[in-house]
Design a protein around this nucleic acid. Structure first.
Lengths: 199, 199
DNA sequence: AATTTCATGTAATTCGTTACATGATTCC
DNA sequence: GGAATCATGTAACGAATTACATGAAATT
């Protein structure tokens, strides 16, 4: 979880712990916030493992420990991004999504499709339990499940949008680059298909 | 978390561990599932603490450990339900919601309002980071945040619905019963205001 | 001068998971 | 007779949190 986030951010540019957290909050604050108590130990651990490299840098103010991704870290990033796809944990998806720009269109599509399938299963299971639950009984529990299903449907619709755009782009440019290997040939802009309701 | 769930379910009727999990999955499966590896130890711990009482019962098939809530457990339930309201953790709310029928209208309203305020803050923070993020950069991250905000807005609308109904009912019946003490005078049915999209 | 923000870290604890182990009962 | 489900548990581990501790630099 945290490791994936760290690698994803550091891939964009080297950063120190404190900034890392700020960036993370910016992108994933709605879904997740890290505490320093887990961030700093994680950075050290990853340095020991050789996934990131540290450099002591004198910034504007005081000393900072600036980290960057190593080649081994690049591989780890892909591993973590693809890991647990068969049991795609709910909370982990936003993380994958936030760094989807770091991989090629084919992998992106695979990841999005997996997620969609998982949501559909969820929808099925939810409807099931709703039928079993509905007989009069618990109005709050029922409302909760209904609301959850509503969200799930929206998630699926959102993914469909993303997938459509993705596939459309895949047809145009034929510079495919698979799961492993070098850096992306400038990850192209993603035209946001989501409307902003009331800004 | 788990303790609240266990107490909430056992308040309705005594159950054994296995059934407890089934019920839990039914109501909260969309948001959370427990493993036996945590459920059984939790039951034992709660028994030691006196929050639940165990009885060995010969069911249809084999022997079962059937648990029920003690008076101390009733108090604990309320504590846990109200706990951490000032830092209302995202994942915990569905749990509160699922057992909202076990408390009186006043407390219900307070819980729902807290949640709403939290979501509004979240909305604010999200819009903020969206503004800061939007300049061209990361299309996936941006789309993710937008989508998250969309969900948050729906959550708020849902809560408004619930609150409206709740307040309306509070006006009619004046048999109020506060946070502590006895059992509710038959928790009244909640008219589900949520439309079922495609059943 | 005081407060806030920046910046880094450690230790104890919480809360859960996975994997393992066992065995009865029911269904086919 | 074999598989699936029911039913209960333990042990090892994981991933994060909270609380604690420190101190420099910027802001007011």
């Amino acid at each position: 979880m945290l490791e994936l986030a760290v690698l994803g951010l550091l891939k964009e540019r080297p950063m120190h712990g404190y900034e890392l957290r700020k960036q993370l909050t910016q992108r994933l604050g709605l879904f997740w916030t890290v505490s320093f108590g887990s961030l700093y130990p994680t950075l050290k651990r990853m340095e020991r493992r050789g996934a990131v490299a540290r450099a002591e840098v004198r910034g504007e103010g005081r000393m900072r420990q600036v980290y960057r991704v190593t080649p081994a870290g690049e591989l780890l990033f892909l591993d973590l991004l693809c890991e647990g796809l068969d049991t795609p944990e709910q909370e982990r998806f936003p993380l994958r999504m936030a760094f989807l720009g770091h991989v090629g269109p084919e992998l992106r599509i695979r990841l999005l499709e997996r997620r969609k399938r998982w949501l559909q299963d969820r929808l099925e299971a939810g409807s099931q339990s709703l039928r079993h639950l509905s007989p009069g009984a618990d109005a709050y529990a029922t409302s909760l499940v209904r609301h959850g299903l509503d969200h799930t449907e929206r998630d699926i619709a959102w993914l469909d949008d993303l997938l459509a755009t993705e596939r459309h782009r895949l047809d145009e440019e034929r510079g495919s680059w698979p799961c492993a290997g070098g850096t992306p040939p400038e990850p192209p802009l993603y035209p946001s298909t989501q409307e902003m309701p009331t800004p």
